[in-house]
Design a protein around this nucleic acid. Structure first.
Lengths: 211, 211
DNA sequence: CTCCGTATTGGACTAAAGTCCAATAGCAAT
DNA sequence: ATTGCTATTGGACTTTAGTCCAATACGGAG
């Protein structure tokens, strides 16, 4: 399915010497590394789809590290962020961690600390990506449902009988059976139990009877 | 069901004056507050079941704040922790946040900061408690199943037919029907769909056909 | 206009599940 | 030994669900 899945580490720091030494370090540990000397340059890049992580300097001209984290956090399949900084304080680090950073390293730091953080961040990225792929697969299959089938689905996963659904939608019970069969086939499941689990993953709310 | 659910804030700090002023502050905001001047004293207390949070000094004689957090983290229904400290650094705050602290405030801090943190922590505690209650409810109902019924359940939520389950267990299909009915009744669900959702919440793995 | 997908319905039939009823055997506690 | 819970089975019956088959109506694309 995928050709390769080499993790990529993005280094964003306005200090060229920091970039350079980080690149060398990361490459010596077998990572593909790419440097950007500002948040703006990083954002110009085409959205990255693979696994990896971002090493981000807090203080930079223009868009700062924290602001960039906010921007990236809005896209769902974002890469884990490791902060590095020369002039950080506790409130700053706490805020970054609250927003989901995987680590926050004050300069100077040991090579080993940085690599440890990168290993963990990349691992996290892999997991995010896997569950994201699963979800996309699911959504693609769900897109193949007709409007009517999408309408019937919440009733089915709520456990209503065909007869009850038919009454709700004012159509024949037979028709519900057909929709049901189509849904099961399109989503590739062999039982209502599997269907329910699928729908849970895709966050499809079952029809609530108390309404 | 519950009589009251007044949130309780536990303050653990070896500095008596800090305890005192925090107690006054918290009470002025309507919280019930209890002070402990060491981690050991706090641990002597009977396990607390209600909602609330813990305000914890990092540096204390004997068991330190971070060590106490580790101890508390092992019990599932633990209270959210807010750290306060006079001599903290970034790595310390990052580690605390990684371990799930809701906040980390260096002294001196504003009253408002502390209260904000407490409000959020208590809110989090409420949510933890609610989902924990739900889980306990579920487990109690699951405990009422007989061994045989527990054995049949994974097959049902995997979507197998009664006939197939009967073959697997080498018993009559009829018997499976009876078990199925008993399970549904004991767990208080009216359809397989609900049963599957319940089992998901309780982390019951469906029987895997590929084995 | 014709073709195709969608939504809808119908009949006949099979298979599965649920609902009454009642019964037996093992096993542990009283 | 009696009681009660668990696991097991049986028959008869009703309700649902799924599976063949085929058909009509509508709207958009070619």
């Amino acid at each position: 399915m995928m050709t390769e899945d080499e993790p990529v580490v993005f280094v964003i720091d306005d200090d060229a010497s920091v970039c350079k030494s980080l690149m060398r370090l990361l490459r010596s540990f077998g990572y593909e590394a790419r440097a950007f000397h500002s948040a703006e340059h990083f954002l110009e890049q085409v959205p990255f789809q693979g696994t990896g992580c971002i090493i981000l300097d807090v203080r930079m001209p223009g868009i700062g590290g924290m602001a960039l984290q906010d921007k990236l956090g809005k896209t769902e399949d974002s890469l884990p962020v490791i902060f590095i900084t020369g002039h950080g304080d506790i409130p700053m680090s706490v805020q970054a961690m609250k927003k989901g950073a995987t680590d926050f390293l004050p300069k100077p730091f040991e090579d080993g600390q940085l690599i440890d953080a990168v290993v963990k961040a990349v691992e996290k990225s892999r997991q995010i990506r896997m569950s994201c792929n699963e979800l996309n697969n699911l959504r693609m299959r769900l897109d193949r449902l007709t409007p009517r089938e999408r309408e019937v689905l919440p009733y089915i996963i709520a456990g209503l009988l065909n007869k009850q659904i038919a009454f709700k939608l004012n159509i024949a019970e037979k028709t519900i059976k057909v929709h049901r069969a189509h849904i099961m086939e399109k989503l590739g499941v062999g039982s209502v139990a599997e269907l329910v689990r699928l729908a849970e993953k895709a966050n499809i709310e079952p029809y609530d009877q108390r309404s």
